[in-house]
Amino acid sequence: MSAWLWISQTHYPVHALGPGNRLTVWVQGCTLSCKGCMSRDTWSADGGVETSVEDLAELWRSAVGQGADGLTVSGGEPLQQADGLSAFLAAADEVRRGAARELDFLVYTGYDEDELDEPRRAALSLADVVVFGRFEVANPTELVWRGSANQRMVPRTELGELRYADFIDYAPEQGPLQIEVRGNDPWIIGTPRKEALRNLDRSLKGVGLRITDTTWRP
């Protein structure tokens, strides 16, 4: 029987959620509902598209063929689909074991390590690095690839240690952001710093563009 994940979006290449060019998969559905979350559109369990693990693995295989450096899974809340995530990372691992270079898996979760039950721990067994912790809008950070200062980037494998050690305490002058277009709508990828989204609103209005809807406001 095929395994499935409810998916909000996928995109390649992404260079704002981990090192290098990455396939990024955003799952659909999150009940943690962190105040100030920039991805409120991924909260509802009624949204997104049910996607087979086989189809997602093929997307990953294609990205690897195009030179991907790694895979990032975000959301939504990936660990609220623990069985599907576990199956997907297992399929993605089969692909990377056939690659001629090392490829890492990075997973974002709003849960802390002490909240992991057995299915959630199993789902992260193949992750090289996990960013743990809920987003706290009142607790900003300049650390790369994290949205708030409480969030912890934890390497879990030798590859994770090797590739991410220099990023644990790294705070670049400007946080990496990427802007793509979905249909006619701009789409921001990354972990914006405090006031970045408000400043973006102002900048767009300053050039005559009126923002009528965003994913980070109710």
Rank of each mutant, 00 (worst) to 15 (best):
Ala82Asn: 03
Asp83Tyr: 14
Asp83Pro: 02
Asp83Lys: 15
Asp83Ala: 15
Leu85Thr: 08
Leu85Arg: 10
Ala87Val: 08
Ala87Gly: 02
Leu89Gly: 09
Leu89Val: 15
Ala90Ser: 11
Ala90Leu: 11
Ala91Thr: 08
Ala92Glu: 07
Ala92Asp: 10
Asp93Ser: 14
Glu94Val: 10
Arg96Ser: 12
Arg96Phe: 01
Gly98Val: 07
Gly98Met: 00
Ala99Tyr: 12
Ala100Arg: 15
Arg101His: 15
Glu102Met: 08
Glu102Leu: 11
Asp104Gln: 03
Phe105Pro: 03
Phe105Asp: 00
Phe105Glu: 02
Leu106Lys: 06
Val107Met: 00
Thr109Lys: 06
Thr109Asp: 04
Gly110Ser: 08
Gly110Ile: 00
Tyr111Leu: 11
Tyr111Asp: 05
Glu113His: 02
Glu113Leu: 05
Glu113Asp: 03
Asp114Val: 02
Glu115Trp: 06
Glu115Cys: 00
Asp117Phe: 08
Glu118Ile: 09
Glu118Gln: 10
Pro119Ser: 04
Arg120Asn: 01
Arg121Asn: 11
Ala122Ile: 13
Leu124Gly: 06
Ala127Leu: 13
Asp128Gln: 03
Asp128Phe: 06
Val129Trp: 08
Val131His: 01
Phe132Asn: 07
Gly133Asp: 10
Arg134Ser: 10
Val137Gly: 01
Val137Asn: 08
Pro140Asn: 03
Pro140Trp: 03
Thr141Tyr: 01
Thr141Gln: 04
Leu143Val: 07
Arg146Ile: 01
Ser148Glu: 00
Ala149Ser: 15
Arg152Pro: 03
Met153Pro: 02
Val154Asp: 04
Thr157His: 00
Glu158Phe: 09
Glu158Gly: 06
Arg163Lys: 15
Ala165Asn: 08
Ala165Gln: 14
Asp166Gly: 12
Asp166Pro: 05
Phe167Arg: 12
Ile168Lys: 04
Asp169Met: 09
Asp169Gly: 13
Tyr170Gly: 05
Ala171Glu: 15
Ala171Met: 15
Ala171Thr: 10
Glu173Phe: 13
Pro176Lys: 05
Gln178His: 04
Gln178Met: 14
Ile179Thr: 13
Ile179Trp: 06
Gly183His: 11
Trp187Lys: 07
Trp187Ser: 11
Trp187Pro: 08
Gly190Glu: 07
Lys194Glu: 10
Glu195Lys: 08
Ala196Asp: 15
Ala196Pro: 04
Ala196Ser: 14
